[in-house]
Design a protein around this nucleic acid. Structure first.
Lengths: 235, 235
DNA sequence: CGGGCGAAGATTGTATAAAGTTTCGCCTGT
DNA sequence: ACAGGCGAAACTTTATACAATCTTCGCCCG
C-alpha cells in the first residue's frame, strides 16, 4: 500500500500552512521574542507569512486553546499574560503529571531513546555555552516534551504541551533572578536515572526539578500592572 | 469602572453562535445520538443551526482539539472513534487527576456547593428512574465536571472536560453489559465524603469509582472493525 | 482647563464565492 | 466477466468582500 501518497496519520504538526503559522508564532512566544500582552493583528501576521486572514485566524484559535494566546471578542488576539494564580496551577499540574510520565518513559526505554536524550543534553549544553538564551529556553522546554513522547501516552503528551507552553510565559513574567532558564544539570541527572531504569529516583528528581523552578519565581500580583509599561517601552 | 459594559471575563461557553453549535454537537455526541464514525458535514450542520460554514468549521475545530471529533484533511470531520489504547490512557489520566481534584474541592467546600451537588444527585436519580438514558449519560459526566469546577482549578477543569468527553465515547463503544452509565450510588457516596470533609475517603471513593467504570469495559481491539458495519446500518 | 460626547478610522466577525481534492460511478479494453 | 482508468459530482479548503463592533481623536460644553 502506497503509504507515501496518503499521510494516513493525522499529524497536527504537519507541514500545512496553518501549522507553519502556528509553530512560527509559538516559537516566537516561547523564545520570548513576543512579550505577554503583545497584540497579534490578523493582517500583520498574514502579511508576514503570506497567508490570508482565514488561515491566521485558525492558527490563533488553536493557540488560544493551548492557553498561550487570549482572544477577546471584537478586540483581537494577544499573547497571554498568566496570573500568579495561573502559575501556581500550572506548576501544581506539572508536579502531578510529570513524575507519572517519567515512570512510563522508563517502561519504554530503549537504546534509541537514550541516544535521543543524550543528543538533547548536548544541544542544551552547547546553547548555554554560547549564551543563546532563546535556544536555551526552547530546549529546556523540549526536554520535558521529549520525555513525554518517550512515555508513549498521547493524552499526557497533549496536556504537557499546554503546560510547557504556559510555563515558558510564566517563567518570563515572574522569574526572580536572571537565572539561565532551568538547571541543565537537573536534566542530566534525570537522564541518568532513566538510563539506570531507577523509577523512584527519576520521579523524585523530576519532582524536585519542578519544585525548584517554581521556587525561583516571584508569584506576587503587582507584577501585572507593573509590566504594562515595560512591554510598551520594549515594543 | 463600569464592569457591566465589558464582559471582562472571557467565558468560552458564552452565548455566541459558535458556542451554541459546539455545545449542540457535543451534547449529541455525549448523549450517544451521534455514533463514532459518523460524518459531520459542514453544510448539514450549518443548515440545522442556521449558520454559515465558517462558524461550523470553527466549532468543529474546537471539538477536534477536545478529542471527540477527528478532522481528516480534504475529507471532513467525523465523530472520533477512540481505540482501546486511547481508552486506557484516558482512564489512567482520570485516575491520576480526579483524586487530586476532589482534594481541592474539599478545601473549597461551602453550603452553596453542597446544595449544588445535592441538587445534581436528585437530577441524576430522577433521570434514572424515568429511564432517560440520554440524560443519565450526560448527568453522570456532569457530576465529575461539577466537582472540578468546585475545586477552582481552571487547568484541571480544562483537562477533565476533555477526559470526560472522551470517556463518554469510550463507554459507548466498549461497555460490556448494558449497565446504566456509571453507578449513581458512587456519586452519592462521594458527595457524603465531601460533606464530611473527609479527604482520604473522598479520594479513595473517587478512585474506586473510576476503576469500576473501566472494569466494566471490554477493551479489545476487534471491536473497532466490527463496529464499522454497525453504525453504517444504524444510520 | 477638564470631562464627556460623537464621528472617523481601523479591526474583527460573518458570509459568500472561487479553487483544489477526493470519491464514486461508469465505461472501455482485455 | 472483470480490472483499470477516465470523468463528473460533492466536498473541503482558501480567498475575498461586506457588515458589525470597538478604539481613538477631536470638538464642544460646563
Amino acid at each position: 500500500m502506497a503509504a507515501k501518497t496518503r499521510p494516513k496519520f493525522d499529524v497536527p504538526d504537519a507541514s500545512d500552512r496553518v501549522s507553519r503559522i502556528r509553530e512560527g508564532v509559538t516559537a516566537a512566544i516561547l523564545e520570548h521574542r513576543l512579550l505577554p500582552g503583545t497584540k497579534l493583528g490578523e493582517d500583520e501576521i498574514g502579511d508576514i507569512y503570506g497567508a490570508s486572514r482565514t488561515l491566521v485566524r485558525t492558527a490563533l484559535q488553536q493557540l488560544a486553546h493551548e492557553g498561550i494566546v487570549n482572544i477577546e471578542k471584537n478586540r483581537g488576539a494577544f499573547v497571554a499574560r498568566p496570573t500568579p494564580a495561573d502559575a501556581r496551577e500550572v506548576f501544581e499540574a506539572r508536579r502531578l503529571i510529570e513524575p507519572t510520565i517519567i515512570g512510563h518513559a522508563i517502561d519504554a526505554v530503549s537504546p534509541a531513546w537514550i541516544d535521543r536524550l543524550q543528543r538533547h543534553l548536548t544541544e542544551e549544553r552547547e546553547a548555554e555555552l554560547r549564551g543563546d538564551a532563546r535556544a536555551s529556553v526552547r530546549l529546556s522546554g523540549e526536554f520535558h516534551r521529549l520525555v513525554a513522547e518517550m512515555s508513549g501516552h498521547s493524552i499526557y503528551l497533549g496536556f504537557l504541551k499546554e503546560l510547557i507552553a504556559r510555563s515558558s510565559l510564566i517563567i518570563l513574567l515572574y522569574r526572580r533572578h536572571d537565572t539561565p532558564a532551568c538547571g541543565t544539570d537537573h536534566h542530566a541527572g534525570i537522564v541518568a536515572a532513566i538510563r539506570k531504569r531507577d523509577r523512584e529516583a527519576a520521579r523524585a528528581q523530576m519532582l524536585s526539578h519542578l519544585t525548584e523552578i517554581e521556587a525561583e519565581l516571584f508569584l506576587k500580583d503587582p507584577a501585572a500592572d507593573e509590566l504594562r509599561l515595560v512591554d510598551v517601552l520594549g515594543a
